[in-house]
Design a protein around this nucleic acid. Structure first.
Length: 153
DNA sequence: GCCAACGTTGGC
DNA sequence: GCCAACGTTGGC
């Protein structure tokens, strides 16, 4: 059982969008970074805990709780010529990009970056590290507990 | 819109 | 394999 933080731009897929989807489940399309892909492909397992993070928006922060809902499989958008996620070097025989399904569990009060930064127990949280742009990052069990504690306030 | 930080590309 | 140029991310 592992824990993750996954960024999504709410103008693309917000926690509300995910909760409104069939079975509250969305395919995590569009990841085009090898490290993030490898996390999904090699380390994620169904049932892993997910912090649903809103990025590139007026109020960035943790907006909900979710879980990994599938093993990794090829991201179909890489094969779609008219998709902005199309990758001409990918073929169904040799896919490059993988994704997992994510099931939203609940929306939370927004846990802002300022609040996260103010907690010394979260000093090592990857999302708070300078220059970190990874859209998927691991969260330790103690960080997860700490964040749940914040969310229960 | 700015800009720091980082990943990727491609010429050599 | 180096590394400069370029593109992207994402908070502010």
């Amino acid at each position: 059982m592992q824990y993750w933080l996954m960024k999504s731009e709410p103008s693309e897929v917000s926690i509300d969008d995910a909760l409104a989807a069939p079975a509250s489940t969305v395919p995590w399309t569009g990841v085009r970074n090898y490290q993030a892909r490898n996390f999904m492909r090699d380390l994620m397992r169904p049932g892993d805990g997910v912090l649903f993070y809103h990025s590139s928006c007026p109020e960035p922060g943790i907006a909900g709780l979710a879980e990994v809902a599938s093993d990794a499989y090829p991201d179909p958008t890489q094969f779609e010529r008219d998709s902005k996620y199309h990758d001409p070097k990918a073929t169904p025989e040799t896919p490059r990009w993988m994704l997992v399904d994510v099931r939203a569990k609940r929306k939370t009060a927004l846990l802002s970056l300022a609040v996260l930064r103010a907690d010394p127990a979260l000093a090592e949280l990857a999302i708070l590290k300078r220059g970190n742009r990874l859209s998927i990052t691991p969260v330790s069990a103690s960080e997860w507990r700490c964040i749940l504690q914040h969310l229960s306030k």
